[in-house]
Design a protein around this nucleic acid. Structure first.
Lengths: 233, 233
DNA sequence: AAACCCCAGTGACTTTAGTCACTGCTTCTC
DNA sequence: GAGAAGCAGTGACTAAAGTCACTGGGGTTT
């Protein structure tokens, strides 16, 4: 059990290069927790208890609007940490977190983590790197929300998925949507219906073949050039 | 001259509590630069030369779209630092920076700043705090872009301005817009025309009195309740 | 099998955002 | 003082986003 915790720590950039002894010391302070898909870990505004690491599965960080709409800020998978920030600045969580898949996570209390940082100043530099990456991603989201349409965002999400988990067949790149339209909408900052309609439209235009959650990208190059064309206008 | 540099350093959270000697050492490594309003400091994608501090004036950090639209990410004023991140992670600037007003800035090269951090580990903690605050602001921008309308964002900008620099008269809170509609549009992530129209509409609805760049908020409570009402829907 | 829930699709519509083109007002410059 | 440049206002329009209401298909539950 403890060995497995150490393996997770080693996969996590924040703690990747600690000595065996340090690792063991840290591992003894870590709590383990499992989450079922959809289960909420904390809500926006909750006061910060500590730092989380993802051992397996995926955790979704998101904002919830008063009217019930969601905007995903990040999806952290195994080896990622999250909620580093409130640990340092003492503020509340700026967004909510819930399990995107069944997940296992590790928890380090604020106090323990702060003490650890004090003894290991180079961890602070790692935190900066991690937070920096996060910041760049947020800037990317802002750019997308401000400059692009839902259609473009959907296309670029599909391209990502095709890249990451598509299987090449003779009809095109096949992939399975593992989530509901609702979930994709939250990722792109829009509503269910627009996902549905835009998928239909992309199919009508011959870029895709959609059947339920199975999806075949028939014209990858075409989709890419749709994005490129949009940049001009 | 050098004394003035030290005064700026002391106003900057990153370096606020250094000793006299440390301050002098750092000051000797700092370069000073003036910018006229509108002058560009660096562009998105430029490779990162170092860290900047604002001595006076205001610096605008923004994204530029392919079609020429701008989205402001932050406006940093005296005492703020910016571009800390690329200094650490070695990446390029994720956004562009230009002077929002005539400004004086200080510059510390990447190398000097890194060395300085190595000698003063507590500065790294300060960096985390500063970056954390920035991250929270970005999350706020995402929230606004994703959940609110231009009208709401404009109202909330006006309320901020009224709070910060409005003068109370018997007709309402008077304030002067120091920037063009274009500039406000960039702050809210929209276009010139929508600023113009929304201001007209707010005037027609009796919330404001607009005359050129002079503006009187006649119904502050009304504006506030417009925002609150929007949260419901 | 009936009742229920969740998800997807869609027609019809409203609202918001954005575009284009033009006017007119200042202010600056030569 | 004639032009040029920048800013603001607006009409007319298109397009994108979002809302509402309803249908129907699987599942699961009891």
């Amino acid at each position: 059990m403890t060995e497995s915790i150490e393996r997770v720590l080693r996969k996590t950039p924040l703690f990747a290069n600690l000595t065996e002894a340090e690792m063991r010391a840290l591992a003894s302070r870590v709590t383990r927790k499992s989450l079922k898909q959809g289960e909420q870990l904390f809500a926006e505004g909750d006061s910060c208890a500590g730092l989380f690491l993802v051992a397996s599965g995926k955790i979704r960080i998101f904002k919830l609007s008063a009217s019930g709409r969601e905007q995903v800020l990040a999806i952290e998978s195994a080896g990622s940490s999250f909620a580093e920030l409130p640990v340092f600045d003492g503020g509340n969580y700026p967004a909510a977190a819930s399990a995107w898949e069944d997940s296992e996570i590790l928890f380090i209390s604020r106090k323990d983590f702060q003490n650890f940082c004090r003894e290991h100043p180079d961890v602070a530099l790692k935190v900066i790197a991690v937070v920096g990456a996060r910041l760049r991603r947020l800037v990317g989201i802002i750019e997308e929300l401000s400059f692009t349409t839902v259609r473009q965002r959907l296309i670029s999400l599909l391209l990502q998925l095709a890249e990451a988990e598509g299987t090449r067949t003779k009809e095109g790149i096949q992939l399975e949507l593992k989530k509901s339209h609702q979930d994709f909408a939250a990722e792109l900052g829009t509503v269910r219906e627009l996902i549905s309609r835009n998928l239909s439209r992309l199919q009508a235009e011959g870029f895709l073949e959609v059947e339920g959650r199975k999806l075949v990208v028939k014209n990858l190059a075409g989709l890419k050039s749709e994005l490129a064309a949009a940049e001009q206008s």
